[in-house]
Nucleic acid binder design. Structure first.
Length: 496
RNA sequence: CCUGCUGUAGCUCAAUUGGUAGAGCGCUGGAUUGUGGAUCCAGAGGUUGUGGGUUCGAGACCCACCGGUAGGACCA
Protein backbone atom coordinates (compact mmCIF):
# COMPACT_ATOMS: atom_id res chain seq x y z
CA UNK A 1 0.00 0.00 0.00
CA UNK A 2 1.39 3.37 -0.90
CA UNK A 3 2.02 5.88 1.84
CA UNK A 4 -0.63 8.26 0.63
CA UNK A 5 -3.23 5.50 0.65
CA UNK A 6 -2.72 4.51 4.25
CA UNK A 7 -5.79 4.85 6.43
CA UNK A 8 -5.50 7.28 9.28
CA UNK A 9 -5.90 5.71 12.71
CA UNK A 10 -8.66 7.73 14.24
CA UNK A 11 -12.05 7.16 15.69
CA UNK A 12 -15.26 8.86 14.63
CA UNK A 13 -16.28 11.88 16.61
CA UNK A 14 -18.62 11.29 19.51
CA UNK A 15 -17.36 7.76 20.10
CA UNK A 16 -14.94 6.51 22.71
CA UNK A 17 -12.48 3.76 23.47
CA UNK A 18 -12.46 2.65 27.08
CA UNK A 19 -9.43 1.03 28.59
CA UNK A 20 -9.31 -1.28 31.56
CA UNK A 21 -9.97 0.95 34.56
CA UNK A 22 -12.68 3.02 32.88
CA UNK A 23 -14.42 -0.03 31.47
CA UNK A 24 -14.39 -1.82 34.81
CA UNK A 25 -15.75 1.24 36.56
CA UNK A 26 -18.64 1.38 34.13
CA UNK A 27 -19.32 -2.32 34.50
CA UNK A 28 -19.40 -2.01 38.27
CA UNK A 29 -21.74 0.93 38.12
CA UNK A 30 -24.10 -0.91 35.79
CA UNK A 31 -24.01 -3.95 38.06
CA UNK A 32 -24.83 -1.85 41.13
CA UNK A 33 -27.73 -0.13 39.42
CA UNK A 34 -29.11 -3.34 37.96
CA UNK A 35 -28.97 -5.03 41.35
CA UNK A 36 -31.33 -2.36 42.62
CA UNK A 37 -33.66 -2.85 39.65
CA UNK A 38 -33.63 -6.57 40.23
CA UNK A 39 -34.37 -6.11 43.92
CA UNK A 40 -37.54 -4.24 42.97
CA UNK A 41 -38.59 -7.21 40.89
CA UNK A 42 -37.61 -6.13 37.41
CA UNK A 43 -36.15 -8.79 35.15
CA UNK A 44 -33.41 -8.56 32.60
CA UNK A 45 -34.18 -8.12 28.92
CA UNK A 46 -31.75 -7.76 26.05
CA UNK A 47 -32.89 -6.64 22.63
CA UNK A 48 -31.18 -6.19 19.31
CA UNK A 49 -29.18 -3.03 18.69
CA UNK A 50 -30.81 -2.54 15.33
CA UNK A 51 -34.50 -1.99 14.75
CA UNK A 52 -36.66 -1.07 11.82
CA UNK A 53 -36.91 2.68 11.63
CA UNK A 54 -40.71 2.64 11.73
CA UNK A 55 -40.60 0.49 14.86
CA UNK A 56 -38.29 2.94 16.59
CA UNK A 57 -41.00 5.51 16.19
CA UNK A 58 -41.62 8.80 14.58
CA UNK A 59 -39.93 10.72 17.32
CA UNK A 60 -36.51 11.06 15.81
CA UNK A 61 -36.55 10.03 12.16
CA UNK A 62 -39.17 11.15 9.69
CA UNK A 63 -40.36 10.07 6.27
CA UNK A 64 -38.12 12.29 4.21
CA UNK A 65 -35.03 11.64 6.27
CA UNK A 66 -35.13 8.14 7.73
CA UNK A 67 -31.65 8.71 9.12
CA UNK A 68 -32.25 12.06 10.81
CA UNK A 69 -30.88 11.87 14.31
CA UNK A 70 -30.19 8.15 14.15
CA UNK A 71 -27.62 5.93 12.51
CA UNK A 72 -29.66 4.35 9.77
CA UNK A 73 -29.01 2.08 6.83
CA UNK A 74 -31.06 0.36 4.21
CA UNK A 75 -31.21 -3.41 4.42
CA UNK A 76 -30.60 -5.28 1.17
CA UNK A 77 -32.67 -8.22 2.38
CA UNK A 78 -36.03 -6.50 2.39
CA UNK A 79 -35.27 -2.99 1.21
CA UNK A 80 -36.27 -1.59 4.59
CA UNK A 81 -34.70 1.17 6.63
CA UNK A 82 -32.92 -0.03 9.75
CA UNK A 83 -31.42 2.07 12.52
CA UNK A 84 -29.39 1.70 15.66
CA UNK A 85 -31.65 2.14 18.70
CA UNK A 86 -31.52 5.62 20.19
CA UNK A 87 -32.94 4.56 23.54
CA UNK A 88 -34.10 1.40 25.28
CA UNK A 89 -37.75 2.31 25.60
CA UNK A 90 -38.76 2.15 21.96
CA UNK A 91 -37.32 -1.38 21.58
CA UNK A 92 -39.21 -2.37 24.73
CA UNK A 93 -42.46 -1.20 23.19
CA UNK A 94 -41.72 -3.30 20.13
CA UNK A 95 -40.97 -6.38 22.23
CA UNK A 96 -44.17 -5.97 24.21
CA UNK A 97 -46.16 -5.58 21.01
CA UNK A 98 -44.46 -8.58 19.45
CA UNK A 99 -44.40 -10.99 22.39
CA UNK A 100 -46.99 -9.45 24.70
CA UNK A 101 -49.24 -12.50 24.81
CA UNK A 102 -46.49 -14.62 26.30
CA UNK A 103 -45.32 -12.02 28.77
CA UNK A 104 -46.64 -11.55 32.29
CA UNK A 105 -48.80 -8.46 32.73
CA UNK A 106 -47.67 -6.07 33.99
CA UNK A 107 -44.31 -6.69 32.37
CA UNK A 108 -41.44 -5.36 34.45
CA UNK A 109 -38.04 -5.42 32.86
CA UNK A 110 -34.67 -3.72 33.12
CA UNK A 111 -32.13 -3.36 30.37
CA UNK A 112 -28.70 -1.84 30.03
CA UNK A 113 -26.54 -1.21 27.05
CA UNK A 114 -25.28 1.31 24.54
CA UNK A 115 -27.59 3.52 22.53
CA UNK A 116 -26.69 5.67 19.56
CA UNK A 117 -27.73 9.12 18.46
CA UNK A 118 -26.38 11.01 15.50
CA UNK A 119 -25.66 14.20 17.38
CA UNK A 120 -24.86 17.19 15.27
CA UNK A 121 -22.32 18.47 17.69
CA UNK A 122 -20.69 15.76 19.78
CA UNK A 123 -18.58 17.14 22.60
CA UNK A 124 -16.83 16.22 25.79
CA UNK A 125 -19.98 15.14 27.59
CA UNK A 126 -22.24 14.60 24.65
CA UNK A 127 -21.56 11.37 22.83
CA UNK A 128 -23.01 9.59 19.86
CA UNK A 129 -22.70 6.26 21.66
CA UNK A 130 -23.50 6.12 25.33
CA UNK A 131 -24.80 3.74 27.97
CA UNK A 132 -28.16 3.65 29.64
CA UNK A 133 -29.72 1.61 32.44
CA UNK A 134 -33.46 1.42 31.95
CA UNK A 135 -36.33 -0.02 33.95
CA UNK A 136 -39.99 0.06 33.04
CA UNK A 137 -43.32 -1.35 34.06
CA UNK A 138 -45.55 -1.96 31.06
CA UNK A 139 -49.27 -2.49 31.42
CA UNK A 140 -50.19 -0.65 34.58
CA UNK A 141 -52.38 2.34 35.24
CA UNK A 142 -51.66 2.81 38.90
CA UNK A 143 -49.62 5.69 40.18
CA UNK A 144 -47.97 3.18 42.51
CA UNK A 145 -45.73 2.35 39.58
CA UNK A 146 -44.79 5.99 39.09
CA UNK A 147 -44.08 6.40 42.78
CA UNK A 148 -41.97 3.30 42.51
CA UNK A 149 -39.91 4.94 39.79
CA UNK A 150 -38.93 7.58 42.35
CA UNK A 151 -38.10 4.91 44.90
CA UNK A 152 -35.97 2.94 42.48
CA UNK A 153 -34.09 6.03 41.33
CA UNK A 154 -33.44 7.13 44.91
CA UNK A 155 -32.24 3.74 45.95
CA UNK A 156 -29.96 3.43 42.93
CA UNK A 157 -28.32 6.73 43.87
CA UNK A 158 -27.76 5.58 47.42
CA UNK A 159 -26.39 2.25 46.25
CA UNK A 160 -23.82 4.21 44.28
CA UNK A 161 -22.85 6.20 47.35
CA UNK A 162 -24.46 9.42 46.16
CA UNK A 163 -26.42 11.19 48.85
CA UNK A 164 -26.75 14.57 47.24
CA UNK A 165 -29.41 14.21 44.59
CA UNK A 166 -32.94 15.31 43.78
CA UNK A 167 -35.56 13.35 41.90
CA UNK A 168 -37.62 16.04 40.24
CA UNK A 169 -41.16 15.12 39.29
CA UNK A 170 -43.76 16.89 37.20
CA UNK A 171 -46.78 15.85 35.18
CA UNK A 172 -47.40 16.52 31.53
CA UNK A 173 -51.10 16.77 32.23
CA UNK A 174 -50.47 19.61 34.65
CA UNK A 175 -48.49 21.37 31.93
CA UNK A 176 -51.37 20.75 29.54
CA UNK A 177 -53.64 22.29 32.12
CA UNK A 178 -51.46 25.38 32.16
CA UNK A 179 -51.67 25.61 28.38
CA UNK A 180 -55.44 25.28 28.52
CA UNK A 181 -55.68 28.06 31.08
CA UNK A 182 -53.56 30.25 28.80
CA UNK A 183 -55.89 29.33 25.94
CA UNK A 184 -52.97 28.43 23.75
CA UNK A 185 -53.66 25.76 21.16
CA UNK A 186 -51.00 26.35 18.54
CA UNK A 187 -48.52 23.47 18.89
CA UNK A 188 -45.47 25.58 18.02
CA UNK A 189 -46.24 28.10 20.74
CA UNK A 190 -46.96 25.37 23.29
CA UNK A 191 -43.64 23.77 22.46
CA UNK A 192 -41.91 27.12 22.78
CA UNK A 193 -43.38 27.66 26.23
CA UNK A 194 -42.39 24.18 27.38
CA UNK A 195 -38.84 24.70 26.16
CA UNK A 196 -38.67 27.97 28.00
CA UNK A 197 -39.92 26.40 31.25
CA UNK A 198 -37.23 23.77 30.92
CA UNK A 199 -34.57 26.46 30.70
CA UNK A 200 -35.58 28.10 33.99
CA UNK A 201 -32.52 26.82 35.75
CA UNK A 202 -30.22 28.32 33.13
CA UNK A 203 -31.86 31.61 32.30
CA UNK A 204 -33.63 32.36 35.61
CA UNK A 205 -37.07 33.88 35.93
CA UNK A 206 -35.96 37.07 34.18
CA UNK A 207 -34.81 35.07 31.16
CA UNK A 208 -38.14 33.24 31.09
CA UNK A 209 -40.04 36.52 31.04
CA UNK A 210 -37.92 37.86 28.20
CA UNK A 211 -38.14 34.65 26.22
CA UNK A 212 -41.92 34.54 26.51
CA UNK A 213 -42.09 38.22 25.61
CA UNK A 214 -39.89 40.08 23.15
CA UNK A 215 -36.86 37.79 23.28
CA UNK A 216 -33.47 37.82 24.95
CA UNK A 217 -29.77 37.91 24.44
CA UNK A 218 -28.08 34.75 25.61
CA UNK A 219 -24.68 34.41 27.21
CA UNK A 220 -22.96 34.28 23.87
CA UNK A 221 -24.62 37.54 22.90
CA UNK A 222 -26.87 36.15 20.18
CA UNK A 223 -30.46 37.21 19.99
CA UNK A 224 -33.23 34.71 20.67
CA UNK A 225 -36.54 35.81 19.28
CA UNK A 226 -39.27 35.65 21.92
CA UNK A 227 -42.79 34.25 21.78
CA UNK A 228 -44.44 37.66 22.14
CA UNK A 229 -47.09 36.43 24.55
CA UNK A 230 -49.41 39.00 26.09
CA UNK A 231 -48.33 40.35 29.44
CA UNK A 232 -51.08 38.52 31.31
CA UNK A 233 -50.00 35.17 29.89
CA UNK A 234 -46.38 35.75 30.80
CA UNK A 235 -47.46 36.59 34.30
CA UNK A 236 -49.47 33.44 34.56
CA UNK A 237 -46.52 31.29 33.46
CA UNK A 238 -44.30 33.02 35.98
CA UNK A 239 -46.85 32.40 38.69
CA UNK A 240 -47.01 28.77 37.63
CA UNK A 241 -43.26 28.44 38.05
CA UNK A 242 -43.65 29.82 41.55
CA UNK A 243 -45.84 26.86 42.45
CA UNK A 244 -42.70 25.14 43.66
CA UNK A 245 -43.21 24.86 47.42
CA UNK A 246 -41.16 23.39 50.25
CA UNK A 247 -43.33 20.27 50.38
CA UNK A 248 -44.83 18.16 47.63
CA UNK A 249 -48.33 18.49 49.08
CA UNK A 250 -48.16 22.27 49.02
CA UNK A 251 -46.91 22.18 45.45
CA UNK A 252 -49.89 20.03 44.47
CA UNK A 253 -52.26 22.54 46.07
CA UNK A 254 -50.62 25.37 44.20
CA UNK A 255 -50.85 23.45 40.93
CA UNK A 256 -54.55 22.99 41.46
CA UNK A 257 -55.24 26.67 40.97
CA UNK A 258 -53.79 26.50 37.49
CA UNK A 259 -55.49 23.25 36.60
CA UNK A 260 -58.92 24.11 37.91
CA UNK A 261 -60.45 24.87 34.52
CA UNK A 262 -59.01 21.88 32.73
CA UNK A 263 -60.02 18.26 33.24
CA UNK A 264 -56.59 17.17 32.07
CA UNK A 265 -54.87 19.45 34.54
CA UNK A 266 -57.01 18.28 37.45
CA UNK A 267 -56.27 14.69 36.60
CA UNK A 268 -52.55 15.50 36.51
CA UNK A 269 -52.67 17.04 39.96
CA UNK A 270 -54.60 14.07 41.31
CA UNK A 271 -51.96 11.76 39.90
CA UNK A 272 -49.24 13.70 41.66
CA UNK A 273 -51.23 13.56 44.89
CA UNK A 274 -51.54 9.82 44.51
CA UNK A 275 -47.79 9.49 43.96
CA UNK A 276 -47.27 11.59 47.05
CA UNK A 277 -49.26 9.14 49.18
CA UNK A 278 -47.03 6.28 48.13
CA UNK A 279 -43.93 8.36 48.76
CA UNK A 280 -45.14 9.23 52.24
CA UNK A 281 -45.62 5.65 53.32
CA UNK A 282 -42.18 4.92 51.93
CA UNK A 283 -40.63 7.68 54.04
CA UNK A 284 -39.15 9.56 51.13
CA UNK A 285 -37.89 12.90 52.40
CA UNK A 286 -38.98 16.11 50.71
CA UNK A 287 -35.40 16.93 49.83
CA UNK A 288 -34.88 13.80 47.75
CA UNK A 289 -38.07 13.86 45.68
CA UNK A 290 -39.64 17.18 44.75
CA UNK A 291 -42.52 18.23 42.54
CA UNK A 292 -41.17 20.82 40.17
CA UNK A 293 -43.17 22.93 37.67
CA UNK A 294 -40.13 23.65 35.50
CA UNK A 295 -39.44 20.02 34.66
CA UNK A 296 -40.53 19.21 31.10
CA UNK A 297 -38.38 16.45 29.53
CA UNK A 298 -38.04 16.47 25.79
CA UNK A 299 -39.42 13.24 24.45
CA UNK A 300 -42.77 13.69 22.81
CA UNK A 301 -44.13 10.40 24.01
CA UNK A 302 -44.53 11.23 27.69
CA UNK A 303 -48.17 11.52 28.68
CA UNK A 304 -48.25 11.77 32.49
CA UNK A 305 -45.72 12.02 35.28
CA UNK A 306 -42.16 12.80 34.20
CA UNK A 307 -39.00 12.27 36.22
CA UNK A 308 -35.47 13.46 36.31
CA UNK A 309 -32.55 13.02 38.68
CA UNK A 310 -30.59 16.15 39.23
CA UNK A 311 -27.26 16.35 41.00
CA UNK A 312 -27.52 19.76 42.62
CA UNK A 313 -23.92 20.17 43.67
CA UNK A 314 -21.86 22.70 41.82
CA UNK A 315 -18.85 21.85 39.77
CA UNK A 316 -16.31 24.33 38.61
CA UNK A 317 -16.08 24.54 34.86
CA UNK A 318 -13.11 26.76 34.06
CA UNK A 319 -13.46 28.49 37.41
CA UNK A 320 -17.17 29.16 36.97
CA UNK A 321 -19.52 27.26 39.25
CA UNK A 322 -22.19 25.31 37.45
CA UNK A 323 -24.76 22.76 38.49
CA UNK A 324 -23.85 19.28 37.44
CA UNK A 325 -27.36 18.68 36.24
CA UNK A 326 -29.39 15.76 35.01
CA UNK A 327 -28.21 12.16 35.16
CA UNK A 328 -31.46 10.28 34.62
CA UNK A 329 -34.87 10.81 33.13
CA UNK A 330 -38.12 9.09 32.47
CA UNK A 331 -41.86 9.26 32.63
CA UNK A 332 -45.18 7.70 31.79
CA UNK A 333 -45.91 6.91 28.17
CA UNK A 334 -49.31 5.52 27.46
CA UNK A 335 -49.24 5.24 23.68
CA UNK A 336 -45.94 3.62 22.72
CA UNK A 337 -47.28 0.10 22.43
CA UNK A 338 -50.56 1.27 20.97
CA UNK A 339 -48.66 2.36 17.88
CA UNK A 340 -48.15 -1.32 17.08
CA UNK A 341 -51.25 -3.03 18.37
CA UNK A 342 -53.95 -0.39 18.55
CA UNK A 343 -54.48 -1.38 22.15
CA UNK A 344 -53.72 1.15 24.85
CA UNK A 345 -50.93 -0.20 27.06
CA UNK A 346 -49.90 2.30 29.69
CA UNK A 347 -46.31 2.15 30.88
CA UNK A 348 -43.88 4.06 33.04
CA UNK A 349 -40.19 3.91 33.76
CA UNK A 350 -36.91 5.73 33.71
CA UNK A 351 -33.38 5.55 32.45
CA UNK A 352 -30.13 6.35 34.18
CA UNK A 353 -27.40 7.86 32.03
CA UNK A 354 -24.38 5.84 33.01
CA UNK A 355 -21.77 8.07 31.44
CA UNK A 356 -23.01 11.28 33.04
CA UNK A 357 -23.07 9.53 36.39
CA UNK A 358 -19.54 8.25 35.95
CA UNK A 359 -18.42 11.78 35.24
CA UNK A 360 -20.22 12.94 38.37
CA UNK A 361 -18.64 10.27 40.52
CA UNK A 362 -15.18 11.08 39.33
CA UNK A 363 -15.80 14.72 40.21
CA UNK A 364 -16.97 13.62 43.65
CA UNK A 365 -13.85 11.46 43.78
CA UNK A 366 -15.92 8.46 44.60
CA UNK A 367 -14.43 6.35 41.89
CA UNK A 368 -12.63 3.25 42.98
CA UNK A 369 -8.91 2.55 42.67
CA UNK A 370 -7.39 4.40 39.76
CA UNK A 371 -5.39 1.51 38.38
CA UNK A 372 -6.36 -2.00 39.28
CA UNK A 373 -3.73 -4.44 40.43
CA UNK A 374 -1.94 -6.06 37.52
CA UNK A 375 -0.83 -9.66 37.13
CA UNK A 376 2.27 -11.23 38.57
CA UNK A 377 4.89 -10.93 35.82
CA UNK A 378 7.36 -13.75 35.32
CA UNK A 379 10.38 -12.22 33.62
CA UNK A 380 12.53 -14.04 31.11
CA UNK A 381 16.15 -13.55 32.04
CA UNK A 382 17.48 -16.44 30.05
CA UNK A 383 15.62 -17.36 26.89
CA UNK A 384 17.24 -20.80 26.80
CA UNK A 385 15.21 -21.63 29.89
CA UNK A 386 11.90 -20.59 28.37
CA UNK A 387 10.09 -23.76 29.39
CA UNK A 388 11.11 -23.40 33.02
CA UNK A 389 9.48 -19.98 33.08
CA UNK A 390 6.34 -21.48 31.60
CA UNK A 391 6.26 -24.02 34.44
CA UNK A 392 6.45 -21.19 36.95
CA UNK A 393 3.46 -19.41 35.39
CA UNK A 394 1.53 -22.66 35.24
CA UNK A 395 2.03 -23.20 38.96
CA UNK A 396 0.92 -19.69 39.80
CA UNK A 397 -2.18 -19.97 37.65
CA UNK A 398 -3.04 -23.37 39.07
CA UNK A 399 -2.98 -21.69 42.47
CA UNK A 400 -5.44 -19.11 41.16
CA UNK A 401 -2.92 -16.30 41.00
CA UNK A 402 -3.35 -13.89 38.10
CA UNK A 403 -0.03 -14.10 36.32
CA UNK A 404 1.67 -13.98 32.99
CA UNK A 405 4.91 -14.85 31.30
CA UNK A 406 6.67 -11.85 29.82
CA UNK A 407 6.03 -12.41 26.15
CA UNK A 408 7.99 -9.50 24.74
CA UNK A 409 11.39 -9.49 23.19
CA UNK A 410 13.20 -6.91 25.27
CA UNK A 411 16.02 -6.81 27.75
CA UNK A 412 15.55 -7.44 31.41
CA UNK A 413 15.40 -3.78 32.31
CA UNK A 414 12.58 -3.22 29.88
CA UNK A 415 10.77 -6.19 31.41
CA UNK A 416 10.87 -4.47 34.78
CA UNK A 417 9.47 -1.33 33.21
CA UNK A 418 6.73 -3.40 31.65
CA UNK A 419 5.82 -4.90 35.02
CA UNK A 420 5.76 -1.42 36.50
CA UNK A 421 3.41 -0.18 33.80
CA UNK A 422 1.13 -3.13 34.36
CA UNK A 423 0.95 -2.22 38.04
CA UNK A 424 2.21 -5.68 38.84
CA UNK A 425 2.47 -6.54 42.55
CA UNK A 426 5.20 -9.15 42.20
CA UNK A 427 7.88 -9.84 39.64
CA UNK A 428 9.38 -13.31 39.48
CA UNK A 429 13.06 -13.26 38.58
CA UNK A 430 15.08 -16.32 37.71
CA UNK A 431 18.45 -16.51 35.96
CA UNK A 432 21.37 -18.87 36.02
CA UNK A 433 21.97 -18.28 39.74
CA UNK A 434 18.46 -19.25 40.70
CA UNK A 435 18.26 -22.23 38.37
CA UNK A 436 21.51 -23.63 39.81
CA UNK A 437 20.33 -23.17 43.39
CA UNK A 438 16.78 -24.34 42.85
CA UNK A 439 15.38 -20.96 43.89
CA UNK A 440 13.46 -18.00 42.48
CA UNK A 441 13.79 -14.32 43.33
CA UNK A 442 10.62 -12.36 44.05
CA UNK A 443 10.40 -8.62 43.93
CA UNK A 444 7.66 -6.73 45.73
CA UNK A 445 7.10 -3.92 43.30
CA UNK A 446 5.05 -1.77 45.65
CA UNK A 447 7.52 -2.03 48.51
CA UNK A 448 10.29 -1.26 46.04
CA UNK A 449 8.47 1.85 44.94
CA UNK A 450 7.95 3.00 48.52
CA UNK A 451 11.58 2.41 49.47
CA UNK A 452 12.90 4.17 46.41
CA UNK A 453 11.46 7.44 47.71
CA UNK A 454 14.04 7.51 50.45
CA UNK A 455 17.13 6.38 48.60
CA UNK A 456 19.37 9.05 47.19
CA UNK A 457 22.40 7.17 46.05
CA UNK A 458 21.88 5.23 42.86
CA UNK A 459 24.60 2.68 43.57
CA UNK A 460 23.19 1.91 47.00
CA UNK A 461 19.68 0.96 46.01
CA UNK A 462 20.78 -0.99 42.98
CA UNK A 463 23.09 -3.14 45.07
CA UNK A 464 20.78 -3.41 48.05
CA UNK A 465 17.60 -4.50 46.24
CA UNK A 466 15.74 -4.35 49.55
CA UNK A 467 12.30 -5.16 48.17
CA UNK A 468 13.19 -8.61 46.94
CA UNK A 469 13.97 -11.98 48.36
CA UNK A 470 15.16 -15.31 47.07
CA UNK A 471 13.08 -18.30 48.09
CA UNK A 472 13.13 -22.00 47.44
CA UNK A 473 11.49 -23.02 44.23
CA UNK A 474 8.97 -25.20 46.10
CA UNK A 475 7.86 -22.18 48.14
CA UNK A 476 7.06 -20.13 45.05
CA UNK A 477 3.28 -20.12 45.35
CA UNK A 478 3.22 -19.55 49.09
CA UNK A 479 5.72 -16.69 48.94
CA UNK A 480 3.99 -14.96 46.04
CA UNK A 481 0.67 -15.27 47.86
CA UNK A 482 2.19 -13.71 50.98
CA UNK A 483 3.50 -10.71 49.06
CA UNK A 484 0.19 -10.16 47.25
CA UNK A 485 -1.66 -10.21 50.56
CA UNK A 486 0.76 -7.61 51.91
CA UNK A 487 0.30 -5.43 48.86
CA UNK A 488 -3.46 -5.77 49.14
CA UNK A 489 -3.36 -4.53 52.72
CA UNK A 490 -1.20 -1.57 51.84
CA UNK A 491 -3.25 -0.46 48.85
CA UNK A 492 -6.47 -0.80 50.84
CA UNK A 493 -5.06 1.37 53.60
CA UNK A 494 -3.99 3.96 51.10
CA UNK A 495 -7.47 4.12 49.68
CA UNK A 496 -9.12 4.40 53.08
C1' C B 1 -26.44 25.18 12.10
C1' C B 2 -24.97 30.43 14.34
C1' U B 3 -21.13 33.27 17.24
C1' G B 4 -16.39 33.84 19.67
C1' C B 5 -11.55 31.79 20.80
C1' U B 6 -7.90 28.41 19.06
C1' G B 7 -4.46 24.98 15.93
C1' U B 8 3.74 24.51 16.71
C1' A B 9 7.21 17.13 18.53
C1' G B 10 3.26 11.52 21.32
C1' C B 11 1.57 15.25 25.61
C1' U B 12 1.88 20.42 27.88
C1' C B 13 3.55 24.72 25.93
C1' A B 14 7.86 28.61 24.21
C1' A B 15 9.66 31.50 19.88
C1' U B 16 10.95 40.41 20.75
C1' U B 17 8.06 44.98 15.95
C1' G B 18 7.43 39.39 10.50
C1' G B 19 14.32 37.47 10.47
C1' U B 20 18.01 30.32 11.31
C1' A B 21 11.67 26.17 15.04
C1' G B 22 12.96 25.35 21.09
C1' A B 23 12.08 23.39 26.25
C1' G B 24 9.88 20.16 29.89
C1' C B 25 7.47 15.54 30.31
C1' G B 26 7.16 10.94 27.78
C1' C B 27 9.75 7.40 24.59
C1' U B 28 14.53 4.68 23.15
C1' G B 29 19.63 3.64 24.40
C1' G B 30 23.81 4.11 27.85
C1' A B 31 26.30 4.95 32.82
C1' U B 32 24.84 -0.60 35.73
C1' U B 33 27.22 -8.49 31.06
C1' G B 34 20.66 -9.76 35.86
C1' U B 35 16.48 -4.92 38.27
C1' G B 36 10.85 -0.38 37.18
C1' G B 37 10.58 4.19 40.58
C1' A B 38 16.21 8.72 42.16
C1' U B 39 20.49 11.09 39.22
C1' C B 40 23.54 12.08 34.91
C1' C B 41 24.59 11.56 29.51
C1' A B 42 22.98 10.67 24.57
C1' G B 43 19.37 9.70 20.66
C1' A B 44 14.91 9.52 17.90
C1' G B 45 10.79 12.46 17.04
C1' G B 46 8.32 18.65 12.83
C1' U B 47 6.49 20.05 5.30
C1' U B 48 4.37 24.85 12.45
C1' G B 49 -3.80 21.68 10.50
C1' U B 50 -4.57 22.23 4.68
C1' G B 51 -4.57 25.36 0.35
C1' G B 52 -3.86 30.13 -1.49
C1' G B 53 -2.21 35.44 -0.82
C1' U B 54 0.99 39.81 1.04
C1' U B 55 6.55 40.14 1.67
C1' C B 56 13.47 40.10 0.03
C1' G B 57 11.74 36.92 4.08
C1' A B 58 5.63 34.16 7.37
C1' G B 59 4.84 29.72 13.00
C1' A B 60 3.29 34.96 13.40
C1' C B 61 -0.23 39.22 8.87
C1' C B 62 -4.79 38.48 5.14
C1' C B 63 -8.56 34.97 2.74
C1' A B 64 -10.77 30.15 2.28
C1' C B 65 -11.33 25.30 4.02
C1' C B 66 -10.55 21.56 7.86
C1' G B 67 -10.04 20.19 13.12
C1' G B 68 -10.49 21.46 18.43
C1' U B 69 -12.97 24.32 22.10
C1' A B 70 -16.66 27.69 24.70
C1' G B 71 -21.56 29.61 24.42
C1' G B 72 -26.18 29.40 21.80
C1' A B 73 -30.00 26.79 18.46
C1' C B 74 -31.53 21.72 18.45
C1' C B 75 -31.67 17.33 21.50
C1' A B 76 -32.01 14.74 26.41
Amino acid sequence: MSETNRPKARKPKGFRDSFASQSMERQEMIATICDVYSKFGFELLETSCIEYVDALGKFLPDQDQPDAGVFAMKDDLDDQWLALRYDLTAPLARVVAEFGDDLPTPFRRYQHGPVWRREIKPSKDRFREFFQCDFDTVGCETMAADAEVCLVLSEAMRALGIDEFVVRVNNRKVLNGLMASLEITEPAVRLGILRTLDKLDDIRIEGVKQQLGPGRKDKSGSWNEGLHLPYSSINRVVEFLQCKMPTRRETCDAFLEFAAGSPDGVEGVNELKSIEQYLEVSDIAQEFVTFDPSLVRGLEYYTGPVFEIELPFEVKVKGKPKKFGSVAGGGRYDYLVERFTGKKVPATGASIGVDRLLAALSLLQKTKSEASLGPVVVTMMDKEQGLEYQKIVNELRDAGIRSELYLGDRKFKAQMKYADKRNSPVVVIAGSNEFEDGTVTLKNMFLGKALSQEVEDNQAWRKGQPAQSTVKREDLVQSVTDIINQVDLVTQNNQA
